[in-house]
Design a protein around this nucleic acid. Structure first.
Lengths: 65, 65
DNA sequence: GGCCAATGTCAAGCAATATTTACATAAAGA
DNA sequence: TCTTTATGTAAATATTGCTTGACATTGGCC
């Protein structure tokens, strides 16, 4: 599932490590999500949406049919 | 994480099995989510939101601080 | 060139999620 | 009462999400 994390970070000049700290996850987790290795859990997706004050749908893009 | 699946089903007069079929998961998966045994994956949450034509945030309720 | 910060990637392992199969319970109708 | 339908629950297994630790690559700056 595509996502806009990299852009959202860039807008705020945050590194992957910065974002990881704010979300209480590892840097590798952020990297893996950005690189589309896997999707975050629903609770983490909510946490991300809350941090950026945007809807989940505006950050994670649903491709499915 | 609380959710409104039971109500959304009721509004449409769908059984857990009906919803499970529409989402291509087992009936027990629906039951477990409704009974708050665990949260769905993000892709499944998107699929549910798409089916009910509502945002994820309007179906799954974020309790966290 | 050499240094440093940021990012990318890999492997091993644990925890959470999702699956199947199966059985129990509750409610409604004949 | 018997049957049927919907829901609840449990155990075993597979898969995914996330971790730590380590190392490679990239780009900017001195």
């Amino acid at each position: 599932m595509k996502n806009r994390l990299k852009v959202l970070r860039a807008e705020r000049d945050w590194t992957q490590a910065d974002l990881a700290n704010k979300l209480d996850v590892s840097r590798q987790t952020i990297n893996s999500i950005e690189k589309d290795k896997y999707d975050p859990s629903l609770p983490l997706a909510f946490k991300i949406a809350r941090l950026f004050q945007q809807s989940i749908e505006s950050i994670f893009l649903d491709n499915e049919a």
